[in-house]
Design a protein around this nucleic acid. Structure first.
Lengths: 182, 182
DNA sequence: GGAATCATCTTGTCAATGGCAAGTTAGGCT
DNA sequence: AGCCTAACTTGCCATTGACAAGATGATTCC
């Protein structure tokens, strides 16, 4: 916010991040190309490097943005633990591009200060959510809850789940997560 | 086995797959290069194309091999459901390269006959393992079990889990999975 | 045993990409 | 008015995936 203010392009940094999300939503993260993003934004092929250094730098910014979006999504789910888990899955499905980058640290600069802070914030929300629900033992409960929602989201995005799960990931996730706290 | 028998190289197909595992174990799947594999195997840069068609073809073979290895690992875990889950995590950690390709269908030809068959075989083992343990309701139980082990494995590989989990993924997984069946 | 055949592998080439270097443009500041 | 610096461009290079055409050697068939 503080850095990029309308110079030549307007807000190229934001435009490139938006284009990256768009491109990855279409074709996955494997075929992402800085030059394609530049074309989408209508700038030269070297423009992205100025804002992000390199490809990993752009994905670092995207990951940080993703962790903040996740934090927001989890906060919006209220106090219910199951619904927090459903929100996690909902975030993964709705922000597939962000999600697929966030948990692939080999793609970005995982030791970047901003992304580390954003990740910590998201982790806090998840952890306090679990602690509020269960008593002690939050150690294991937290891990189990995170694992089950993350696993479900990942398998859903990979298209690995059988058709009988149905077309609504959040409804299916609600059933599965409830199973953990039965 | 039936197709590639010592011609010029010896067993180039196998050598390339081994090199791919080696390269991905070192540097992850993002930087994998067919030309690098060719160099490792001591052949020309176009040799891989003959055996696998294209890059996705090579990863297809790797994924199929991975699903078969997973089937084997799950079968070796015996009848206990928790230990089957631990074996799933153990497979992911021990065969990281395979695992990281298997659940990224955008990287390979997911509709390939061999890989689909191998995936089905692995799915059978997982599903019958859960059905043997729980009574009916295996629908939800199966999904929950798969999600929790897959999520734990994925988070572990991503380095996303906090240090307090400890250095032994299988021990930690055993605790977490047991929580699901408490 | 020799020729045809075919899988295996090589050489050469092309477009696309990421990254670097050097130059250009245009706001902001004194 | 004149400088300064951020924002962007142009040009270049090494690497890569894919394709085409050729060379090599094992197998088969008569």
């Amino acid at each position: 916010m503080t850095r990029s203010r309308a110079y030549h392009h307007g807000d190229l940094r934001r435009a490139l991040l938006d284009a990256a999300v768009e491109a990855m939503t279409e074709s996955g993260p494997a075929t992402l190309s800085l030059r394609d993003l530049a074309r989408r934004a209508g700038v030269s092929h070297a423009a992205p490097a100025h804002h992000f250094g390199d490809k990993a730098g752009l994905l670092t910014a995207l990951a940080a943005q993703g962790f903040d979006l996740l934090t927001e999504a989890l906060r919006g789910a209220g106090d219910d633990l199951v619904e927090t888990g459903v929100a996690y899955v909902g975030f993964a499905v709705r922000h597939r591009a962000h999600f697929e980058v966030m948990f692939r640290p080999d793609l970005y600069h995982a030791d970047d200060a901003e992304v580390m802070a954003a990740r910590t914030r998201a982790g806090e929300v998840l952890r306090t959510g679990v602690a509020r629900h269960t008593g002690r033992g939050a150690e294991v409960d937290s891990l189990a809850a995170w694992s089950i929602v993350h696993g479900f989201a990942t398998l859903w995005l990979a298209g690995a789940l059988p058709p009988r799960v149905g077309p609504d990931p959040e409804a299916a996730a609600r059933t599965v997560i409830s199973r953990l706290f039965a």
